[in-house]
Amino acid sequence: MSETIIEMDDVSKWYGNFQALHNIDFKVNKGDKIVVCGPSGSGKSTMIRTLNWLEAHQKGTITVDGTVLHDKMKNIDEVRMNVGMVFQHFNLFPHMTVMQNLMAGPMWVRKIPEVEARDTAFKYLERVRIPEQADKYPGQLSGGQQQRVAIARSLCMSPKVMLFDEPTSALDPEMVSEVLDTMIGLAEDGMTMVCVTHEMGFAKAVADRVVFMDEGKIVEENDPVSFFENPQSERTKDFLGQILVH
């Protein structure tokens, strides 16, 4: 029985009167690689953002690494330290060099000594294959390089799980593969990952499970072979028809 890292139990979320998430049940075990897909507005980004409480839910229970997320909690920052997040628009800190971006988290919140933080940062920069960019500012890098730095920045915090919120959607087409390759490498190393993405090739290559969402509900959840070869719901068939044809 493998260890559960994230569990959503009957979670609902509203923006005013609009219900963004409907009774979501979702579980991530250690080592899982899960791809979440669905049309825009289906709630997939909202769902992944509730997992580190960037968005608050109003009903149900979210448990991350043994901690229940709720609005009176004092230790949300401790939960977030262990949950890496990669954003669509990278969100690197533009006033800091690549190296400073990577060292900030470990030094400021993990209280790791500077020398050690620098070694770790350099190790992950090599891993995403851009050690030569260490002293540049984010604005001097291409989109693909920035996203790889963002992944390295998350890894420097030694997270127990990584969340990817459409990590390749803002990239020029020729830069998508360098970011996906980095993510595939991470998956091969056993990182626990939840990825909101439209990259179905990535889903086929690394996912243990694919979750399909529509209108704030999880419509279908299956292993990638069954999901792509034998989708159960009409909505999933439509969606796959649309994205796989193009």
């Binding site: 920052d77 977030r80 969100n91 800190f93 900030a104 988290g105 400021w108 920045r153 998350s154």
Partner: peptide
Amino acid sequence: SRGQWEASRSMGFGFGLTMRKIILPQ
């Protein structure tokens, strides 16, 4: 940008730290 807050908070930086080190310098 909102994303700067989100990136900072998602790394476990508190409100004060985010303000001083990430938002104010920008």
